[in-house]
């Protein structure tokens, strides 16, 4: 309803039994605004934009030049590099959660009439979109310069979708870690103790090997994202878990991480109590 300001009526709040202000049960505007905010903030921080554009370009330059002189096939490592970009950017996107908490912004979201799952989804989709943006840039650069990447549009469509699911999963993982942290210092320890090994043991970098490593690699959800992307992207790549297993594992990873993120977000943290 758009009316002239003069005809706007304020209910008299002094009445004896005021009805509650209407609660809009539709949580989607909240999801949208939180997602949009992540993107707008990103675009307004010039160093972040340069970093995001620069990283795929530098990686692409270094990897393509570096592999030129070695006996390895860069195309084989390309999917793993994509997943690394997703991992790092998704995780760094959630570091902004710690900043939001420290700056006091998050407080106002926590007391808003928004279900926590909607808040979580909004923040995650913003972070995942940023990760996708960088990974897509890297993918385009790959297509411009590499031979042997799939050209079937159906396969490419699946690649993008699988990347989207994986980026949501990884952003949620970052969210779960960042939720209870009061400063960004601790994040670096997690980064090198958990996240980097997780990537190294995903089949991105070296083959599964033997013994206990096989177990770890096959228990690592990232393995399936990498294997799936490799099967879809690299012509003639058929070894490893089946494509449907890769899809199932990646989707399950995303669902579980999202559920954990929602659960975390229902818990208060000491960080909110810093005055």
């Amino acid at each position: 309803m758009s009316s002239t300001p003069s005809s706007k009526t304020l209910e008299s709040p002094i009445s004896d039994n005021p009805p509650a202000a209407p609660i809009d049960e539709n949580p989607w505007p909240a999801v949208g605004t939180l997602c949009r905010r992540e993107l707008v903030r990103f675009l307004r921080q010039r160093n972040r934009v340069f970093g995001a554009l620069g990283q795929p370009i530098i990686f692409w330059l270094l990897f393509s030049e570096g592999f030129r002189g070695s006996q390895f096939d860069y195309v084989h490592f390309f999917p793993g590099t994509l997943v690394m970009i997703l991992l790092f950017t998704a995780i760094f996107a959630t570091i902004s959660l710690i900043e939001d908490r420290r700056e006091g912004f998050l407080q106002s979201v926590l007391i808003a009439p928004v279900p926590r799952w909607a808040m979580t989804l909004g923040i995650l989709s913003g972070g995942a979109a940023l990760a996708m943006f960088q990974a897509l840039l890297f993918l385009v650069l790959g297509y411009l310069t590499l031979d042997g990447l799939a050209v079937d549009p159906l396969a490419i469509g699946q690649v993008v979708l699988l990347m989207a699911v994986a980026s949501l999963a990884l952003t949620a993982l970052g969210f779960v870690i960042a939720w209870r942290m009061e400063s960004t210092h601790g994040f670096h320890a997690i980064m090198s103790l958990v996240l980097l090994p997780m990537w190294l043991l995903s089949g991105s970098f070296f083959p599964p090997g033997e013994g206990w490593m096989v177990w770890i690699v096959s228990a690592n959800p990232l393995t399936y994202s990498v294997a799936g992307l490799r099967q879809l992207l690299v012509d003639g790549q058929v070894d490893g878990p089946s494509l449907s297993t890769c899809w199932a594992a990646t989707v399950a990873f995303a669902l579980v991480m999202f559920a954990l993120a929602c659960l975390s977000s229902r818990r208060g943290t000491k960080g909110d109590l810093l005055s």
């Binding site: 921080q45 006091g104 407080q107």
Partner: peptide
Amino acid sequence: APSLDKKLTVVENLQHHGHLYG
């Protein structure tokens, strides 16, 4: 502690708040 998003404009902060409150 100010709960405004410093990177957003005045209007954007208000819009954001509005969306959170339906």
